[in-house]
């Protein structure tokens, strides 16, 4: 092969790899975008597909946390002060999870409209605020959650 041809083959191989990579990226990417919704958006039916993984954020309503006696399932209500949604989660809640504080749960909606969380993330902030708003406050308030 002449150098020119070699170069051509090389570029061809490289671009094939790139195309394959981009196709994989695109497919997987679309499956794994986790959209964030407020309880109001969920209650009003703004969530497109019931089976998709989503995040819901709000504050944990006081006295709403119920532990089941026979297993490690825990239920609580997340509210954005307008609407509320019931969340079920099996497992250990994070250290910073507290009633009356902000929380983000990741999971899916079940057929009754309850939220089955596979992951619960709690943030350390003193506000009675939905997390989107609390996030913004955190930015301006210079609150520190975790160093690196």
């Amino acid at each position: 092969m002449k150098p020119r041809q070699k170069r051509f083959v090389l570029i061809l191989i490289a671009s094939c790899l790139l195309v394959v990579a981009s196709v994989i990226v695109k497919n997987v990417f679309n499956d794994n975008l986790v959209f964030f919704y407020s309880p109001t958006e969920i209650v009003s039916g703004d969530v497109p597909q019931k089976k998709k993984l989503i995040r819901v954020g709000g504050m944990v309503v006081r006295d709403s946390v119920v532990r089941h006696q026979d297993n490690t399932t825990v239920s609580f209500i997340v509210s954005d002060n307008v609407n509320a949604i019931k969340v079920h989660y099996e497992g250990i809640l994070p250290d910073l999870f507290r009633e009356g504080k902000g929380v983000v749960a990741q999971g899916k909606l079940d057929q009754h409209g309850d939220f089955m969380a596979s992951q619960v993330l709690a943030k350390h902030d003193e506000n009675y605020m939905p997390p989107e708003v609390a996030d913004l406050l955190e930015r301006s308030k210079d609150q520190k959650i975790l160093g690196d």
């Binding site: 986790v34 964030f36 989107e132």
Partner: peptide, 8 residues
């Protein structure tokens, strides 16, 4: 507002 899940 979205996040990209670890499976991606």
């Amino acid at each position: 507002k979205i996040s990209v899940g670890p499976p991606y």
